[in-house]
Amino acid sequence: MEQFAETLSGRVTTDEALQELVGLIYQQATSEPKFRSGGARLCGYLSHHLTIRSQRGSFRQVLLQRCQADYEPRYQAAKGDEAARKRFHGFVLFLGELYLLLEIEGANTEARVAALRGLLEALLSHPVGYNLICAVKFLKLTGPALKDARKEQGRTDMDEVIQRLGNVTLDAPCSEGVRHMLLKLVELRSNDWGRGPVTSASERNST
């Protein structure tokens, strides 16, 4: 990536070229699942190492502006036609990958976490199968980081999200397969997202 960034720094020298670069990476990362993680890593690297700045800002600022453009109509997208939903789901999962990679500190941390929570709210505002599947994938990706960030802020609203997902398994018109995915997600969260044992050593020794 270092060599790639150096090459781009020599060739991406105009506002239009930076906009085009961001748009190309963004389009591929949100539409091609196999490029989603790699695209996020590329964006994270270029955010720190691509030196050009346009009238709209740095690579990172232009990228976040592009993300904001798709974030604002999130509720409409969650209820849109198949093509709109597919684009929205790609955006949600890409933003999850991006969140895990960009170094975001201070007040921006809360803003970014709130944005991810907003994506979850949009998905759950229309709790049908395809939105619920996307929410499960999103939380499997970002759940541990979101929990840690909210804990540092003294917030427990992610607990409310998980409780809401649990309620969805009872009320939402979804298939048994999706219902099973939701229950497994709730179970995963109760086990600290698979990061460690739930029971203490004394409890294990007594069984």
Rank of each mutant, 00 (worst) to 15 (best):
A145V: 08
S54C: 06
P197M: 03
A78K: 02
H180I: 07
F59M: 07
E110C: 03
E110S: 13
L102D: 10
Q65H: 09
E72K: 12
T142E: 03
F59R: 04
V186M: 11
S58A: 11
F94L: 09
P144K: 04
C67G: 12
G44W: 05
I133M: 09
L50C: 05
K34E: 14
L188H: 10
N131E: 06
S206I: 11
E82Y: 10
G10R: 11
L146E: 02
L116Y: 05
S200V: 00
V113A: 08
L100P: 00
D148K: 15
E110V: 09
D148N: 12
Q28A: 14
S31H: 09
P127Y: 06
A145H: 11
G106M: 08
F88K: 03
R60M: 10
I25A: 02
D70L: 15
T13F: 01
G166S: 09
L101Y: 04
L170P: 00
G10D: 07
L188N: 04
S206T: 13
A145D: 11
Q28C: 07
A5L: 08
D15Q: 08
R112F: 13
Q76M: 12
P173F: 05
E20F: 09
L63Q: 05
R74T: 01
R164E: 13
G80P: 00
G90M: 04
E20W: 06
E2G: 05
N167Q: 14
S200A: 09
A83P: 02
L188I: 03
S202W: 07
Q163K: 12
Y71E: 10
R189T: 05
M181V: 01
K184M: 12
I104F: 05
S37F: 12
L102A: 02
T14L: 05
T7K: 13
H48Q: 15
A77Q: 14
